[in-house]
Design a protein around this nucleic acid. Structure first.
Lengths: 223, 223, 223, 223
DNA sequence: GATGAATGAGCTTTCATTCAT
DNA sequence: TATGAATGAAAGCTCATTCAT
C-alpha cells in the first residue's frame, strides 16, 4: 500500500516520507472511517485494524486520539449528535406560513441537511447498538429525538388549533410523519445495497409528505 | 466474507432438516434464546455462552444442534422467515371490499399476527446485520419484503384504478404505508426500552393508518 | 512438546488424548509454574505464554482459573502467604528451654520448613514487586513479616529479662537476627545462579546463628 | 536472552564514552531518573515515557543519548558500579588498628558513602533484575560483590589469626556480617515505604555491628 | 538537538469451537 | 446426549522505537 522499498535508494531519490504529522486532522479522519465501518458492520464486528486502514493510519495511531474502541465509538456519535443538535436548534421554522407549508419546508431542509450528511447515519447506528450503549441511546433520545418530535408536534398542534388540520393527537402524528423519513435512512444504510428494487428516495419523500399533508388537512384538496 | 461455505453437508440427504428434532424440541428453545440475544446485542456481540444459559443448556449443546454460531443465526432467521412467508401467502385479502377497508383489514392482521409474534423481530435483526449476512438480507428482501410491498402496492393500484384513491405511484405509496409499521418494530426492539416517552403502539398504528387512508382517498371525509 | 502427529494414524493407534481434564489440579500447577517464572523474571517481564507452557497448558487455560495476570499473581502470593502464616502460628517455641536454644530450634525449623519450601520464595518476589503491588506488600508485612519479627523479639526480650542475653533492643535485634536468613533466600533466588563462588548455605546459616547467639549472650563462651 | 548484542559500535573509537556529554549533562539526569524508576518498578514495568517525564525531557530525547531501553539500563548500572568500585578501592583500611575497630570504621564509611548515595540502590536493582541481565549480574558479583566480601574476609582472617576473633570461616563470616547491611538497603528500597513499623536505620546498623563484633570476639566484653 | 506523532511487534484477553468425560 | 475444560485464532491494547517536523 505504501512505499516500502525506500531503503536502497535513500541517497538518490528524495522519497516520500513514510508518514506525515496530521495531529489536527487525524481525529476527524479516524471518526469518519469509524462511522462508516460501525454503520456497516456494527460495533463488535468492526475491527480496529479495518478502521485504521480506512483512515490510512495504523492501529496504534487510533490509541493516540482515543482511549479505546468504545471511546472512539462514543466520541464519534456524540460529535455527530452535537452538530445535529446545533442544526436542529438553528433551523426554526417561520411561524407565519401555514402548517402544511411549514412541514414541507422542514422536510426539505431535513432532506438537504440531515438526510444527506453524516447525521443521517446516526439512526441506523443508534438503533443497531441501542442495547450495547444505553447511555448513548438515552442521550440521542433526549437530546435529538425528543426535541425533533416536539418540534413537529408543535406544528401539528398549531395546524389543528387553527383548523388547518383535522383533529389528531399531535405527538402521535409527529411520530407517524417522521417514521417514513427515519425508515428511509435506516433502509439506505442497511438493506438498500442488497435490494434489486432500487428506491427513488426523492420520490419516496415527496410521496410521503404529500400523503401526510393530505392525511392531515381538514378539507384536503382533491388533487 | 460470510455466507459462502455450503460445502460440507452435500452427501447427506437433501431433505434432512437443518437441525435434528428432539422430544423436548431443544433446537427451538435454542433458537428462541438466540433470537432474543441477537436481537438485543447483535450477532458479533452475543456470546454463545449467553445464548446457552438463556436456553438452559451449556455451550457444547449448541454445537450438537447447529454447526456453528453462523449456522445458528441463519437457521433461526430462515425458520422465522419461512413461517412469516407462509403467513403472508395464506393471508390474502378479500377483493370484494373497498381498498381502504382492505388496508385496514391487513393492518389489523399484521398487528395481530406479525407485530406481536417473533416475526416482528426480524426487521430490526435484518437491518442490524444486513452487511454481515448479505445472503440472508437478500433472501429477506426477495422472499418477504418484496412480496409484502407488492401486495400493498396492488391494493393501492386497484384503489387508484377504481377512483377510490388519488393518483399515486402504488409502489412508492406502498413503501410509505409500510414504513411507520416497520419503524414501530425497529423502535420497539431497539431504543424503546430506553425512551422515557412511552409509545402507545395501538394508537400509533391507528393514527398512522387513518392518516394514510385519508392521504390516499380521492375525496377524503373531513372526519 | 506434545504429540503432534496423531492425525495420519487415527484409525490405527489408540493415540493419547490431546489433553485431559484436570480441573482440581490445574490451579495449583499453574500457580507453581507462575511462581517460578515471576520469581525469576518479575511480574511484568513474564509472559503468560511462558507460564502456560511451563504448566503444560495453553494460554487460554490460565483464564479459566484466574481472571487475569494480576489475579494470578495475587492468588499465588496469597495462597503461599496463607500457608506460611499457618506454619508460623503452629510453630510456637517451647518456652521452657533457654533463649539461645529457642533461637537454634527456630532457625532449624525455619531451615527445614520455610527455606526449603515454596514459602522461601516469597521474600525475593515481594521485594522485587513491592511498589507494583502495594496491597500485597502490606499484607505480607502485616501478616507474615511483623508477626515473625514479633516472635523473635519476644524471645530476645525474655533472654534479656532473664539475664541470659545482654541488654539489647529486642525489636532491632530481631531484625538483625533475621536479616541474614532473608538475605540468603533473596540471594539464592536472584544472583546465586550467576555466582562462581558457590555458597554453602547450611554452613552460612550455622555461622550466622552461632555468631548471633555469641553476640547476644551476656557471658559468651570462648568457644 | 539479553546481553548479547555487542556488535554495532565496534568501528568507533574504543574510548568513546557510552553516552555523549552535554553542557547541562542530560545523560546523567536521564540516568538518575531511570535509576529511580527502575529501582521502584523494575526494568520491564518502567515506561520510557515515565523516565523521560521524570528527567524533564521527552521520549525521543532518550534515544539521542542511549541506544535503547536496555542500553540505558546497563549504562546506569555500569556507571554506578564503576564509581562504587573506585570508592571501594580507595577506601582501604588502616592495618594498624584492631580488627574490630576496622570493622567499625568500614561500617561507618559504608553508611556514609554507600548506604546514603546512589550506590546503595544497586543491590535491590541487581537482585530484582538478576535473571533478566545475567551479564550485569555477573559483573556486579565479580567486580563489586566479591572484592567487597574479600575485603571483609581478610579483616576477619587477620582477627582470627591475631587471636582477637574466635575461630570462624572468614568467608562465611564476611557474608554474615554484610548480610544485614545489604538487607537494609533492599528493605529500604522495596517494602519499607509500605511498612507501618518504621525502622531506625542507624540504630539497626549499630545494633548489628555491635552484635557481630561481640559474636566474633574471642573474649567478648560483657557490656 | 528536541519533540511527539506514527509505527508495528508483541502481549493480554476473549470466545467460538473441540473433545475428554 | 450433555457437559464444560481445554484449545488456539484473533482481537484489543501497550509501548519501545523511529522519524517528520
Amino acid at each position: 500500500m505504501r512505499d516500502q522499498n525506500n531503503k536502497s535508494n535513500v541517497e538518490t531519490t528524495p522519497h516520500e516520507p513514510r508518514w506525515r504529522r496530521r495531529k489536527d486532522d487525524r481525529p476527524r479522519e479516524i471518526m469518519d472511517a469509524a462511522l462508516e465501518m460501525f454503520l456497516e458492520r456494527g460495533f463488535a464486528a468492526t475491527r480496529l485494524e479495518d478502521i485504521a486502514t480506512k483512515a490510512s493510519v495504523t492501529k496504534g495511531t487510533l490509541f493516540i486520539y482515543f482511549e479505546n474502541k468504545e471511546d472512539l465509538y462514543k466520541s464519534l456519535v456524540r460529535e455527530n449528535m452535537k452538530e445535529l443538535k446545533a442544526f436542529q436548534e438553528e433551523n426554526k421554522f417561520d411561524i407565519h406560513i401555514s402548517s402544511q407549508e411549514t412541514l414541507l419546508f422542514l422536510t426539505n431542509n431535513w432532506w438537504k441537511s440531515v438526510a444527506n450528511s453524516d447525521y443521517g447515519k446516526l439512526p441506523k447506528l443508534i438503533v443497531s447498538e441501542a442495547a450495547n450503549f444505553p447511555d448513548i441511546t438515552k442521550e440521542y433520545l433526549e437530546e435529538v429525538s425528543r426535541p425533533g418530535r416536539a418540534g413537529i408536534a408543535e406544528i401539528v398542534r398549531r395546524g389543528v388549533e387553527s383548523g388547518e388540520f383535522r383533529k389528531v393527537d399531535p405527538a402521535l402524528a409527529a411520530r407517524v410523519i417522521m417514521a417514513p423519513l427515519f425508515m428511509l435512512l435506516i433502509w439506505r444504510y442497511s438493506v438498500a445495497p442488497f435490494d434489486e428494487d432500487a428506491l427513488n428516495e426523492i420520490e419516496y419523500v415527496n410521496t410521503h409528505i404529500k400523503m401526510a399533508i393530505q392525511g392531515l388537512l381538514a378539507r384536503p384538496s382533491a388533487a
